[in-house]
Design a binder for these strands. Structure first.
Lengths: 235, 235
DNA sequence: ATACATCAAACGTCTGATGTTTATGTTTTT
DNA sequence: AAAAACATAAACATCAGACGTTTGATGTAT
């Protein structure tokens, strides 16, 4: 994962080397979460680098949630670090003035595949669960007075449910990640119509219909986001 | 340097403190991508920590794509922005044990979207670059004696090129990650036919055709993998 | 104006030492 | 015997100083 395109530019840095070595270690040796990694001085000697380089590499791995460093104890393969990475990522989006077009394209990609997988793989029972959640959504939308916060929460719940029944854990966690990423900016009211359309297509196990609905849903959202983000704030 | 009276021993590590400080710097000072960050020794003195701690913090920030460290030059606010936000996630998935079917599905999802984006967004010049790479691939395939290692390398290069011309940096980053994941098990010979089909569809800007070719490509690969993993030994 | 040589600044790495925290085994107390 | 207190070693956290390597800029000769 080091530099994306490194023609022949330069030697790999010691730190990157260590990162790669540890990655290989995890994969090849089939190390499980909770397993202990050799202490810094040992690793330093084994890999022929200084302890400082080992530490920099470990800091990277720990910031990625790959390892967990326990002071006074040792460094372990992390067992549940996904939550840890979240904060820096959101910050990153804030600072870099996130490119929403790119993010939305990622979300669209994920969501299209999610509905395909759902329709192909989900059991009737799982679809029934979705249907029930949609009922709640309908109810919340029609509620008077309308409480958008509640509706947003159900919207989120529905999407999580979608991710859960893809029968692909990787895509589940990737999709959940995307959902969480967009959660703060969600507006269930705007997408309700397309959401409903998508749901009906899913229930009918109509892949093309569902995919189209997802595209509409994301496009509508994208357009709204553009407008709300470009009111040209002075100062 | 012995703090005699330290009631509440440092709750936060020096490195974490630095990370937070730099993050605040970015926000408060409204630093834009490309802006220069003070050199390590200066930061070290300003924040009252050693240069090593500064370096560890910078490594973390750079691993999230927040800053870009250029040796011999300086450290800058990265304009790469959020393109790497999925790397930690994929990283985690990788080490937490993923099964092959799921990985293939992820790759297929990525690749289908990549070809869609290419056909929609890539310029004629960028497609020409792909075409040239394909020529190399053709040549390598027909070479006698056949050198699979070379062919594999060109295959990989082609896929990287695909990622680069999607005009979506997040997807570029994700796709590269997936490519790297599969790189060790690549076999360009097996997929050559489907690869060629995909290429022709891309050059013709035929989205359905390209998507179909990608599906075939991944299915063929999946089947081959199944066979090589299940040598009819029901153990 | 271009090409090359030089130099200072900045990151990369190393060595070695000291501080702090944690886990663990041992001793003492109850 | 069980529980609490203590002692110790191992491991991470941090610091300090030094030297190496790369890069960008500057100046000079062509």
């Amino acid at each position: 994962m080091s530099d994306m395109f490194r023609i022949d530019s330069q030697r790999k840095s010691a730190v990157d080397t260590v990162v790669d070595k540890v990655k290989s270690l995890l994969i090849e040796k089939q190390l499980k979460p909770g397993d202990l990694i050799p202490p810094e001085p040992v690793l330093a000697e084994q890999l022929g680098v200084s302890r400082g380089s080992i530490r920099e590499a470990m800091k990277i791995l720990s910031s990625f949630g790959i390892v967990e460093i326990r002071r006074g104890d040792g460094t372990y393969i992390s067992n549940a670090g996904n939550q840890k990475i979240f904060d820096p990522l959101l910050f990153n989006i804030l600072v870099s003035g996130a490119d929403f077009r790119e993010l939305i394209e990622v979300r669209a990609m994920m969501e299209k595949e999610v509905v395909r997988l759902i329709i192909s793989n989900a059991s009737d029972e799982e679809l029934a669960g979705l249907d029930q959640c949609m009922d709640e959504f309908d109810l919340a939308e029609k509620q008077i007075p309308h409480n958008r916060e509640v509706a947003d929460k159900i919207d989120l719940k529905y999407h999580r449910l979608m991710g859960d029944i893809t029968h692909n854990r990787i895509i589940t966690s990737m999709y959940n990640f995307v959902i969480d990423l967009f959660a703060p900016t969600i507006n269930s009211d705007l997408g309700y119509k397309e959401h409903k359309k998508m749901h009906l297509a899913i229930m009918a196990r109509d892949i093309p219909g569902a995919v189209t609905a997802v595209e509409d849903h994301n496009n509508a959202w994208k357009k709204n986001k553009d407008e709300s983000l470009h009111p040209e704030t002075p100062s």
